[in-house]
Design a protein around this nucleic acid. Structure first.
Lengths: 225, 225
DNA sequence: AGCCTTTACTCTGGATCCAATAACAATGAT
DNA sequence: ATCATTGTTATTGGATCCAGAGTAAAGGCT
């Protein structure tokens, strides 16, 4: 086996997220165990974890099935992330942002500017943006200084389409995607500003709106003038 | 064994919540297995589940320990519930409340009125209130019609002090507790009103404020005039 | 005497085995 | 012919076993 080093849960998570198993498909312990060249025991553990994460659900009285996600589910997951990250941002603003956090956020904003300043988007920029974005969001959540909040966010992020760095980039229309990232970058700067000045409510609302960027903005940014 | 019918996770959950195991205490699989008269296998499954729920955390490289919760954690968990139930309420208000939901909420509000109308509180009323309260909150979350939101809330509620029906009632001062429940009832009625008239933002804010009732209100409701 | 090394033992993770139960199929009765 | 009941099979849950890793303890070396 070549990739036994990665944990079974994360491998399964990836496969499910990638749509390798069809929604509603029933997963047998034996079958998966064999497929991964492993015994049933770790598979049983993994199934329970994936159930908790919401990727699997019990199929009647016996076994598990791949959970089906509707467009509405995607929408809700993003909105849940919005309110939770909004809470984190508000906490941070109300507590006052520590110096090192401000520096870190400033750094990632700077990186974002550098990436977008050239005025267009390349395929290779996408991963970089994803990286910048994760760090920006991660810094805020981390600085909110609450394991409870952080856990709630990370549990929600287990849904593959809910995580902050899961903006779907359409490589066919990099021009539109560029506009989207430009807007996201602008959001980041506004959020940073409000955090610095302790505007809790504003930071929260900006964060909530920012979460929706992948959902509702595409049509507004279309090319047709 | 008398109570083998209840699942191991829920039994452990209860024990941990009740403080039967000390925070930071390390739990050995063997020990717990023996204590419950069961083999190590189900205990291993249970431990992973409890870890996901946030009640246990990994103790270094080996085993699990009971997670410690600070006062700040309690506060955050309640606030997390606030924003999530707030989201549920707003969704419900924006979609328009179906007739059956309105009837159900009205019913529980009526029950609450009946309980409190006599003007004082008895020990025996506490469980009744808890029941009414769970149903009220449950109806709203259920009617929000989103498994993703409902799951996020229920995962947060696994923290024993975060659930909506975990208002700590001080039997020593039933007069103050009566004021608290009266206020909670009033919140319920306001929330109901805003839901009916489709005031999403108001419903959300009321729900968020309502969550805090167990945290910050006690001192305000003290007896000293 | 203190620190490092080595060894022994405990504990967890994975594999296999056994029992219980749910799904399925077949046969018989109404 | 259809439904019910019974028997068979497949699959899951629980128990035990084995191996590997981690921790603690003891002994030796500086």
């Amino acid at each position: 086996m070549s990739d036994n080093d990665k944990s079974l849960v994360s491998r399964l998570r990836k496969l499910i997220g990638a749509g390798h198993y069809h929604p509603g498909e029933r997963l047998g312990e034996e079958a998966v165990a064999e497929q991964f060249g492993v015994s049933r025991t770790p598979v049983r553990l993994a199934f329970r974890t994936l159930e908790q994460e919401g990727l699997l659900q019990r199929a009647g009285k016996r076994g598990f099935m791949v959970r089906e996600f509707t467009q509405a589910d995607v929408h809700c997951a993003v909105e849940v992330r919005g309110v939770l990250e909004g809470l984190a941002a508000r906490r941070l603003a109300e507590r006052g942002m520590p110096q090192d956090v401000a520096e870190s956020l400033g750094f990632w904003i700077q990186k974002g500017r550098q990436l977008l300043d050239k005025g267009y988007l390349l395929e290779t920029d996408i991963n970089q943006w994803s990286d910048i974005n994760s760090h920006f969001h991660g810094s805020i959540v981390g600085a909110a200084d609450s394991r409870v909040v952080a856990d709630a966010i990370s549990r929600n992020n287990h849904l593959p389409f809910a995580a902050a760095d899961s903006i779907i980039i359409d490589s066919e229309d990099l021009a539109r995607e560029f506009k989207k990232l430009q807007l996201a970058q602008f959001h980041h700067e506004l959020i940073f500003q409000s955090l610095k000045s302790g505007e809790g409510a504003r930071a929260e609302m900006l964060m909530r709106e920012h979460a929706l960027i992948g959902l509702r903005y595409p049509e507004l940014l279309a090319d047709n003038p």
